[in-house]
Design a protein around this nucleic acid. Structure first.
Lengths: 132, 132
DNA sequence: ATCGCACACGTTATAGCATAACGCAATTGA
DNA sequence: TCAATTGCGTTATGCTATAACGTGTGCGAT
């Protein structure tokens, strides 16, 4: 799924996520867009739904938050599983991919005949700076 | 962390999870324990907190639900990262471990000097029966 | 042209998930 | 005995997400 032109609301939400230096909750995004006419959560959630579909935004399941993709220029969906390391102190998120991990998980699902749709890998802990 | 004797509430919550054939939300657990005197979410959440700590229950971050550990006899925390395959149709959950995946993720965190505290791996999709 | 359809949008209301803050009781160990 | 810890119960609240309704706009098919 490649990204078509974004609608106004989608562009606004994406911009907020790009400018943020960490993941944001939907309600935080909403607050930051009140000056642009946003009034209700659905305006944010609907935009996020599309941005997720286009692969330019990721959802962090373990903290109920959203981040802009680290390399939105490429098609993130083609890189295999996306993994995240989330610092619980400073909130920074690192995004990475590991084909060997993908491979092992795919082996497992194939063995179980499990049809994987969406895989979440999230490591929570402390980044180098915060662990010091 | 090995499990000391469970308190009454902890035992009740654990029992409900063991009897269930899939993950349950905290509020579903609450409803199933109303006859046993449970009235408020906190009674469930406090019990869950301990059960998670003891490693006899897992939290599924991607669906905000809880499951009993597949092998509570052993110490689940010593098996490395726990991974889950969650069927979005029938709700069944398979729990598994893969040391090679653990190893790859640990390599990555070591390389980044990231201090991992808790890692989530959840595969959502369709189990063999439901995919047919 | 205009009808039908798909889609984005706005609004109100509600559902679902989780914790804060208070106080009480029982246990333990110095 | 006193202080610290832990579990428990209750009320209130906050955060996360979606249902259901209606509007407007663009666009292709007839």
């Amino acid at each position: 799924m490649n990204a078509p032109a974004l609608t106004k609301n989608q562009a606004l939400v994406f911009e907020v996520l790009e400018k943020a230096d960490g993941p944001l909750s939907a309600y935080t995004i909403l607050d930051r867009l009140r000056d642009h006419g946003f009034r209700a959560p659905l305006q944010v959630y609907r935009a996020l739904e599309k941005l997720l579909e286009y692969g330019v935004v990721h959802r962090l399941e373990s903290i109920n938050a959203f981040v802009a993709c680290a390399h939105p220029d490429q098609n993130c969906h083609s890189h295999g599983i996306v993994a995240f390391a989330i610092c619980e102190s400073c909130g920074h998120v690192m995004e990475f991919h590991d084909h060997e991990v993908d491979h092992r998980l795919m082996d497992w699902t194939r063995g179980k005949k499990f049809k994987a749709e969406k895989t979440t890998i999230e490591i929570r802990g402390l980044c180098e700076a915060c662990a010091a």
